[in-house]
Simulated assay, not measured.
Amino acid sequence: MATLTPVSVALPDNKVPTKNAIRDIVATFLTKEWPSVDPETLTTSFHTSFANNHCTVERQKPTGTSTEALKVFMKFHKEAAADMDIFKHLIPTKQEEALFCHEYGRSGLGAKVYGFFKTQDGTLGRVEEFLDARNMEPEDAENALIRADVARGLAMFHVMEPSLAKKAVEPFYEAVMSGLERYHRMDKLKALGKDGGVSVDNLIDYDFTTRLKKVVDKLESVGGKVGWCIHDVQFMNVLVKNDPKEGQSKIVLIDFEFVMRNYRAFDIGGHFMQKMFKWFDEESRIADCRKYTEEEKRHFCEEYARQWNKLTGDSDTGDQVFVESEYGYMLAIAFDVHNMLCFMSEEDDRDPLNLLGLDKLFDEFVDQYARLGLEVP
């Protein structure tokens, strides 16, 4: 269900829902057994993040046969940071996102959407099927079976034909470059870095805009293909099923706030890059692991090309996808750098773990740019 449904619930000022509110929201869509659930018997786990809040909810198993889900997942949308408005004309609305998730789930690739709601205080959210799965870990990318499933999963996602209107790729890069230009040489960000004990002066003074344009031009020159991209391909947005059925994919993709048309290389290269980061770890944002090897990247690209060709009738090679991904690696880094600088600027963030992660992104961009021979004269 992707129709917006008003619910007779108002969240408190801190936006953390009570158990009564949670029960009432879920019962709006699961109407047989959930309305009679005692809210105090619910087991809930609520989490906050910069983008959205989410909650898992489990009720006790009733006596006899149960016809409705015992456990569900809820997402509560938050207002985007002001500077992220530069993407507002490109990203789906919350209702379009809900419809996209509904279509993705209905295809058998993702979680079923039970309902899309609006509370009395204006908060938008979704109630979805809870998936028996865990977040992907960096070491999972070293498992050939999981790696192949991620490759095939991205290919299937990229060639979807959802209800969303197709938009050109160029405005996305115009927005990213405009944002990066705003933060270029910004003294406030340098000061925040110093306060956090990590100098980011070189990053702030680095001309990302000129270099990003060159990367996009090179990708276009090698025939980079376009599809529906997730853009936020951190490993927490790839779920690994705990007990997949035989013949089923081991992975599920989630978190589609930024779904829009882009070079497929963005997600592929971004996936390779994200192996090195654990953005919600409390000890370090940089994962304690090795990078994707070239052999692993090429295996991924072969599996991706095979699935893409199966679905589109194209005859792409793994080598073609690999070349595209080398440029996509930098596209994804530039986007993450922009978003982190936006967060720093809006929230006065000086967390040294975030700063060290940001500095690592910068090093990866500079190294990849040099390795591909793209240095600006």
Results as ranks from 00 to 15, higher is better:
12 P>E: 05
12 P>D: 09
21 A>V: 06
36 S>P: 00
46 F>C: 04
46 F>Y: 15
52 N>L: 09
62 P>Y: 10
62 P>E: 02
65 T>Q: 12
65 T>E: 12
66 S>V: 06
72 V>E: 05
72 V>P: 00
80 A>H: 13
89 H>A: 14
96 E>T: 06
103 E>G: 08
104 Y>F: 15
105 G>S: 07
107 S>H: 00
130 F>P: 10
132 D>E: 14
134 R>Y: 01
135 N>D: 07
137 E>T: 11
138 P>G: 11
140 D>A: 03
141 A>Y: 09
141 A>G: 02
142 E>W: 03
146 I>N: 08
152 R>Q: 13
157 F>K: 02
162 P>Q: 03
164 L>W: 00
172 F>Q: 09
174 E>I: 10
180 L>F: 11
181 E>C: 04
183 Y>R: 01
184 H>K: 10
187 D>Y: 07
188 K>Y: 10
204 I>M: 13
205 D>A: 14
206 Y>K: 11
213 K>Q: 14
216 V>D: 10
218 K>D: 14
219 L>R: 03
219 L>Y: 09
224 G>V: 00
229 C>Q: 11
240 V>G: 02
243 D>Y: 04
243 D>I: 04
250 K>I: 02
254 I>S: 03
255 D>P: 03
260 M>S: 13
261 R>M: 14
265 A>D: 12
269 G>C: 03
269 G>W: 01
277 F>W: 05
296 E>Y: 02
300 F>P: 00
303 E>R: 15
307 Q>V: 05
310 K>Q: 13
312 T>G: 02
318 G>V: 08
322 F>I: 00
329 Y>F: 14
337 V>P: 08
339 N>D: 13
341 L>K: 06
343 F>Q: 09
344 M>N: 08
345 S>L: 07
349 D>L: 06
362 F>A: 09
363 D>N: 10
365 F>H: 06
368 Q>Y: 06
